[in-house]
Computed example of a mutant assay.
Amino acid sequence: MLDANDLRLFHEVAREGSFTGAAELLGYTQSAVSRRIAALERQAGGPLFVRLARGVRLTPAGAALRRHAEAVLDRLGKAEEELAAIHRGGGGTLRIGAFATANVWLVPQALKMFTARWPEVELRLVEGLSGRLLDRLEAGALDVAVVSDYPAGLPAEAETVPLLEERLLVALPLGHRLADREVIDLRDLAEETWIEAAPPGQTTILQAACARAGFTPRGGLRVAEWTGKFGYVAAGLGVTLVPELAARAVPDGLVLRPISEEGPRRKVYAALPEVPLPSALAFVELLGQ
C-alpha cells in the first residue's frame, strides 16, 4: 500500500528535481529523503527517478506515478477542507444529481433557499437519468440525488425520501382533435402514437396505465430528452407525457391537457447515502417545502 506521506514526498522531489531541494522544503535531511524514496521504489517495483550528477529526473514509471499522486493528493486535500468545514458547521462541497425536469423548477427553487442559508457550501450539479444517478450515489460520486419512478420505476432496494407525487399531462400539437378538451380520457388516446423513452424490456408507467384502461399504447419513436420529445410532438409525429414540474418549460406550438383520473402519475424522491452530509439533509428538507 502506498502511503500518502510518501506520495507527498515523492511529489515534492519530482517538482524540485532533486532530493536536496525537497529535503530543504520539507525540513528533512537529504539522506532521509533518499532512504524514503528508495523504499517507495521497492514498493513500486522499480526506479522512479534517474539519478543525475545534479538532481534527478523521472523515469516512465515515475511519470505515471506522479500523475496518480497529483490526483490522490488533490482529493485528499479537498477531503481535509470539506471535513474541516463540516466540523465548523458549514462550508464544504455538496454534489447534487437531478433528473432533467427536476431542474426546471424543483431543484432551482430549493437551491435558491439553500444558498441563502448555506452560502459557504460549494455546489456541483449533475443531470442524468434516475437510475444512473442512483448508481453514482452508491459509488460515492454524489451526496444527494433527486430521482423519479418515471418511466419504469426505481430499484426496490433504493433508499429514498418521498418528495411529491404529480400528474403526467399529455402534450398535443396545436390543432389536434382533442386539444379543445379541458380533460382527456386516457381511452381517447388509444389510437395515438406515443413519443416515449421506454427502457427495453420494462413496463413503463404509461403502459401500466393504458393496460388498466383496456388498451396497449402504440409505440412510436424513442426519444430520451424532453426537449426532443417536444419537437416531435409539435411536428405532429405523436403525443407524449409531460410531468407537471416541466409544464412551464413547454414551448409554443404544443397544448398540455390533464388526463382523467385513470391517467398516469409519477413520484419524485430524494436519495441519500447511508451517512448523509448535514448540508445534504438541509437541501432535502428544502426540496420538501
Rank of each mutant, 00 (worst) to 15 (best):
E261G: 13
G219E: 11
A190F: 04
V268R: 05
P199H: 09
T227M: 06
T204Q: 02
D185K: 05
G263T: 08
D185T: 12
G175W: 15
L237I: 12
V233M: 02
L189C: 05
E196A: 11
G253P: 00
V239E: 11
Q207P: 08
G175E: 08
R257Y: 11
G214T: 11
P258T: 13
L237R: 15
I184N: 01
A234G: 02
A171N: 07
H176Q: 02
A235Y: 07
P258E: 11
S260Q: 11
P173I: 11
T227S: 12
V255L: 04
R177T: 08
A208R: 14
C210W: 02
G253W: 02
F230V: 00
F230L: 04
A208N: 10
Q202A: 12
D252I: 06
R265S: 06
P217H: 00
I259F: 09
A171V: 12
T227R: 10
G263C: 07
R257W: 09
R212M: 07
L172V: 03
D252Y: 10
L186A: 01
R212G: 10
T204I: 14
V268C: 06
R257P: 14
E262R: 15
A171F: 08
A209H: 05
R265M: 11
V255D: 09
L241H: 00
T227G: 11
D185Y: 07
E262D: 14
A171T: 08
D180W: 07
I205V: 15
D188F: 05
E192S: 03
K267M: 13
R181H: 12
W226F: 15
P200M: 05
P199V: 07
